[in-house]
Design a protein around this nucleic acid. Structure first.
Length: 150
DNA sequence: GCCAACGTTGGC
DNA sequence: GCCAACGTTGGC
């Protein structure tokens, strides 16, 4: 069992959208490091913190689970999508998606609280300048955050 | 809206 | 392979 944190802008797709739809193809990831995690490491039944970024109160807002592992991100082939990529081909796709299923909503855990917590000082999310939109969370970080903040 | 910290592109 | 210029992320 592995743990992850996926960022999303709530104006684009929020935890409430995931709750309402139940399942969601996580598309539009256009960063190679994040792509590599999606393609190579995210596994069935892994658990994911859903994180709201670029919003009034950034933070962890819910939990999801992986119900489908890596497949080519459909949006890269869609000329009408803002994620369309002319350099991608069906034979050699550049970008990958996984599919998530809603598990639960959390009382929002603000980034400000996580940043102030010495126990989480080494968490990737807290590292200065870490813009990674798909990032691993350690088992101890996962358990500590849930125990302490939910 | 500002801007620091990245990431990507492309000329050389 | 270097690096300047440009684009993006994301907290504040």
């Amino acid at each position: 069992m592995q743990y992850w944190l996926f960022k999303t802008e709530p104006d684009e797709f929020s935890i409430n959208d995931l709750k309402r739809k139940n399942n969601e193809v996580w598309d539009g990831i256009r960063n190679y490091q994040a792509r590599n995690f999606l393609r190579d490491q995210v596994a069935l039944d892994d658990l994911v913190f859903i994180y709201h970024s670029s919003c009034k109160e950034p933070g962890i807002v819910g939990i999801a689970t992986v119900i489908k592992t890596a497949f080519p991100d459909p949006s890269q082939f869609d000329a009408n999508s803002k994620y369309f990529d002319t350099k991608s081909t069906l034979e050699n796709p550049r970008w990958f998606s996984v599919e998530l299923q809603f598990v639960k909503q959390l009382r929002p855990i603000p980034l400000a609280k996580l940043k102030n917590d010495q126990q989480l000082a080494s968490m990737l999310l807290i590292q200065k300048g870490s813009r990674l939109s798909i990032q691993p969370v350690t088992k101890s970080e996962w358990e500590y955050i849930l125990k302490t903040y939910s």
